[in-house]
Design a protein around this nucleic acid. Structure first.
Length: 152
DNA sequence: GCCAACGTTGGC
DNA sequence: GCCAACGTTGGC
């Protein structure tokens, strides 16, 4: 069992949007960063637990939990010339970008804000709080996971 | 809306 | 392979 954190701008896709999906499941499309791609393509496994983080909004922070519902497969939006995420360099025969499916598990009782996460010495090594970090998907250790959930 | 941090691109 | 220019992320 592995643990992750994935960022999304709630104006684009929020935990409530995920929750409202008929199966509670959605594909995590549009990631165009190689480090994040490699994690989705090579490392994330069915059933891995994921923190849902709201970024670029009034109250950035962790808002809930989801799990990996399908392991890495090609991001088909990259094949669609009409989609903003289109990438002509990515083809079905030789896909450049990958995604996973995630499934809603639950909301946290409250948002654990970025501000709060930064204050905790237990989370000093969490990529999220490192200066200038821009990774949209990152690993979380079991200890970090347990600590974060203990805050909620 | 500002801007710091960082990744990518492309000329040389 | 260097590095300046540019685009993006994302907190504030």
């Amino acid at each position: 069992m592995q643990y992750w954190l994935m960022k999304s701008e709630p104006d684009t896709f929020s935990i409530d949007d995920l929750c409202r999906r008929p199966s509670g499941t959605e594909h995590w499309d549009g990631v165009r960063n190689y480090q994040a791609r490699n994690m989705m393509r090579d490392q994330m496994r069915l059933g891995d637990q994921v923190l849902f983080y709201h970024s670029n909004c009034a109250e950035p922070g962790i808002v809930g939990i989801m799990e990996v519902a399908r392991e890495g497969y090609p991001d088909f939006l990259a094949f669609d010339p009409k989609d903003p995420h289109f990438d002509p360099q990515s083809t079905p025969a030789n896909p450049r970008w990958f995604m996973v499916d995630v499934k809603y598990v639950r909301h946290l009782p409250r948002t654990i804000t970025l501000r709060e996460l930064k204050e905790k010495s237990e989370l000093a090594d969490l990529a999220l709080v490192r200066r200038g970090n821009r990774l949209s998907i990152m690993p979380v250790s079991k200890a970090q996971w347990d600590f974060i959930l203990s805050l909620a």
